[in-house]
């Protein structure tokens, strides 16, 4: 099935299993979702459980918080991650503080799904990943997906999770096909990274739609890299990453986000602190340049780290032990 159908399957299976699970968002009921990630749910579960909302992110995000406190397990859809900007208060300052401010008496089993990322020609206001809007909030779980199978398993785990959970769905992957095992065997444990490919020469930490590009670049370069898909960004799986780097002594993070302020800085900082003396080269990050996401296909295709660019940087890093310059520095376009 397609990635987007794996999302539908996860919603359907959770709604089947638990009558307190309900979904709401803009155009998600009658129309089946702007990206068809809730197709068929209205027919199956009816309008009490599958609700079209007004264009009111503050109201329905906040309503998700209130409904979750009062015993439901709402799943809300933020059509494009950017639209969470108007409702960040409800999630970051509201949902993520309720447990803390009630001595643990309240919990907020709310799932916020948002489509993220570039590659689909939506331009600078509809293509950012913006995970750094939500990763600096203790109490807010942040997860992302990279395959139809883990999309299914991660979303189900997020809905079951007792706390507020933000699910970042790479929009560019919605049409990707893959095998999906439904049911308990298809679940993914939150808080645990996935070792996609074991290896000994270098650890590559990535997530979301960069996973495929990383796998391709590793295959092309023939480097024996250990590839880790982080999956849960907050709180991230330090143990798996540290264990891997303790073995490989090298770390590269591949991110779909501007270099400044990206999530990979956190991984590099933690690894450097914990394993400094055993590193055989400086850890570094392969990111996008510090620019808004450009629209033209000719430009957008350069924005994301491409497999050949990743392979070039990996090869230099492995052969010389020095950190390679990104393409925009080599081409004299930016620092």
């Amino acid at each position: 099935m397609r990635f987007r159908q794996a999302i539908v399957a996860a919603l359907e299976d959770e709604m089947e299993a638990d009558p307190s699970v309900m979904v709401m968002g803009e155009d998600i009921a009658v129309a089946g979702g702007p990206f068809k990630t809730s197709e068929g749910l209205l027919d199956k579960f009816g309008p009490n459980r599958v609700r079209d909302t007004p264009i009111s992110e503050m109201a329905f995000t906040g309503a998700g918080v209130g409904a979750a406190i009062a015993g439901l397990r709402p799943v809300i859809e933020i059509m494009f991650m950017e639209f969470l900007g108007v409702a960040l208060d409800q999630l970051v300052t509201g949902a993520a503080k309720m447990h803390y401010l009630s001595k643990g008496a309240l919990s907020v089993p709310l799932t916020v799904r948002a489509s993220v990322g570039s590659g689909t020609g939506f331009g600078s206001q509809h293509s950012q990943t913006l995970e750094n809007w939500v990763t600096a909030t203790p109490g807010l779980t942040v997860v992302t997906m990279s395959t139809p199978q883990n999309a299914y398993g991660i979303l189900r785990a997020a809905i079951q999770s007792p706390g507020p959970t933000m699910v970042l769905e790479p929009r560019n992957l919605y049409a990707v096909r893959g095998e999906v095992q439904r049911g308990a065997a298809g679940l993914v444990q939150l808080g645990r990274a996935e070792v996609v490919r074991p290896g000994t020469a270098v650890t590559i930490v990535t997530m979301g739609q960069m996973r495929t590009a990383v796998v391709e670049s590793v295959e092309a370069s023939g480097i024996d890299a250990e590839i880790i898909d982080l999956i849960t960004l907050a709180p991230w799986d330090r143990a798996t990453v540290l264990e891997s780097v303790a073995k490989t002594h090298r770390l590269v993070v591949v991110e779909e986000a501007p270099e400044s302020g990206g999530w990979g800085s956190e991984i590099v900082a933690a690894v450097t602190r914990e394993l400094f003396s055993s590193l055989s080269a400086a850890p570094f990050r392969i990111t996008t340049p510090n620019v808004p996401v450009p629209y033209s296909k000719a430009l957008e295709s350069r924005y994301l780290p491409q497999p050949d660019e990743i392979a070039r940087q990996l090869t230099q890093y492995q052969s010389t032990g020095t950190v390679p310059a990104p393409w925009w520095v080599l081409e004299g376009l930016s620092k």
Binding site: M22, N48, R49, M58, A59, F60, T61, G62, A63, G64, V65, G66, A67, A68, I69, A70, G71, L72, P74, D89, Q90, T93, G94, K97, M98, L101, S102, L106
Partner: peptide, 22 residues
């Protein structure tokens, strides 16, 4: 827990009401 952000409690109350209605 009372809300220190102006207006933040309104959608949350609406959501609790949604749960009661549901």
């Amino acid at each position: 827990p009372t809300f220190a952000i102006v207006g933040a409690g309104l959608p949350v109350a609406a959501g609790a009401a949604l749960a009661f209605q549901y």
